[in-house]
Design a protein around this nucleic acid. Structure first.
Lengths: 195, 195
DNA sequence: ACCTGAACACCGTTCAAGT
DNA sequence: ACCTGAACACCGTTCAAGT
């Protein structure tokens, strides 16, 4: 009878991950299992019955965190309107987002450079995110003069890679320094790269 | 006689920091004092005689790491030539740089969201870096039509903020995914934001 | 004055004993 | 079947004893 057990297990994992996310946002790499135990109301043993180890909890959270962001973007551009890279970024940056999520995302970037399992998850999610942006840019790419020879897909993809890198920059800059709103960043980029 | 002692102390700190940088690049947050001890050839006690604690070593390394990058940029633009934001970024990205430094920098970003002392160092260095870019952009800003009414300094500063955020994005994207060379990123940005 | 390394408190992980 | 929490190995930090 794995039905009940699976649902129970999924709920427990979610309960533990939610608690761990809170503690990570507060303490970062100083987050201890003892604190996660206190936050989720279970025991140390229960955590290790549901996750392989501490790094495994981070991997689970990373997958969920990025998945939500991507879904929200896909939904917002599903009307198929013509949107320039700046338009798509403006749309994405205007979506509601928790500042503490940004902190945890930056912690995951740092961990990724050293934890192969986490790195693989980040790469998968980044590829999904890039593809979502490329889909959103497709109508715009079709009407660009330099893509007349059938290169619209390549242009959309390359532009999506650039957009993703810019989102990363805006995330890092916002989480660390808070110098620029999304508007200011994009307006500034348009002025600086106008040509 | 603090002369000999100070020089000795500075050399010891450098020796320990250099060893810690190697271990951080390999192990990230799993780096242990025992490994740093093995790498630098001293004892645990010697480390705590020269640094307050493990986080203090990271702060010391962070200060040095970013300081070198800024100095190199300042030197490269000291001729005062007119350079657009894309030119300045192209110049900076072409400067030699260790990939392992990028990994450690990303780890520091993650830690910064949770370690106030490290965060303060990152903010100071980022402000220096932004000011260096703004100085490099000043000749360009002077000849922009929209800055005719004396707003050249404000334009240079705002553009420098945008450039720094883009460098952050390129660092993160390169360290994590390696999708784009500096050239491809800048060319793509010019095409995407041409207007 | 500076260094060593055993000692201490704490953390991640396990597993025998409970329900 | 799942949970508990004491027990273990290991890590960051200290400090008495060495030179």
């Amino acid at each position: 009878m794995p039905r009940v057990s699976d649902a129970h297990r999924a709920a427990r994992r979610e309960q533990i991950a939610e608690a761990a996310l809170q503690v990570l946002a507060r303490k970062g790499s100083d987050a201890s299992i003892a604190e996660i135990v206190a936050e989720c109301g279970l025991s140390a043993g229960a955590i290790y019955g549901n996750f392989e180890n501490k790094a495994d909890i981070a991997r689970y959270i990373a997958g969920r965190l990025l998945h939500r962001k991507i879904g929200t973007l896909d939904e917002a551009v599903s009307d198929g309107a013509v949107r320039s890279p700046a338009d798509v970024l403006r749309l994405f940056m205007s979506l509601r987002r928790q500042p503490s999520d940004l902190s945890v995302l930056l912690q995951f970037w740092g961990e990724s450079t050293v934890d192969d399992g986490l790195h693989q998850i980040m790469e998968e999610r980044a590829a999904e995110f890039r593809d979502a942006i490329a889909r959103a840019l497709r109508p715009w790419a079709e009407v660009q003069p330099e893509a007349a020879d059938g290169g619209a897909e390549a242009l959309a993809r390359r532009s999506a890679e650039v957009c993703l890198a810019m989102v990363q920059g805006w995330f890092a800059n916002t989480a660390l320094f808070g110098w620029l709103t999304g508007e200011e960043f994009l307006d500034g980029a348009e002025r600086a790269f106008r040509g």
